[in-house]
Amino acid sequence: MSQIIFIESNGTRHEADITDGHSLMEGAVANMVPGIDADCGGACACATCHIYVDDAWTDRLPEKSEMENSLLEFAPHLEAGSRLACQITVSPELAGMIVRLPEAQH
């Protein structure tokens, strides 16, 4: 288990203990973190698990695939830390990572 901190757009903080090896999206959904729709169920085929990863952590994440990049480009409010949560696998290395959620998923 590694703890990830999710912060909603209104500032509400959720500390979620996520099983290593699960995706950040699965972990958020399992912990009832609101604000992640995950319409495609983790296939990197929509952009409804859009999150903002805190600057301090972005370097520890794997590169974005071409598909993730394309989908993110269609999402509103793209930022440097924008990622799709279904494409990030939780590991002890990410324990304590801070993730902000957008106002809504599109």
Partner: peptide, 20 residues
């Protein structure tokens, strides 16, 4: 339990832009 997992909007880069 997971009603949003359906194909009606399509998926991928052409997914329905007006879904919401």
């Amino acid at each position: 339990a997971r009603p949003r997992q359906h194909l009606s909007f399509g998926f991928g880069i052409h997914r329905c832009v007006g879904n919401r």
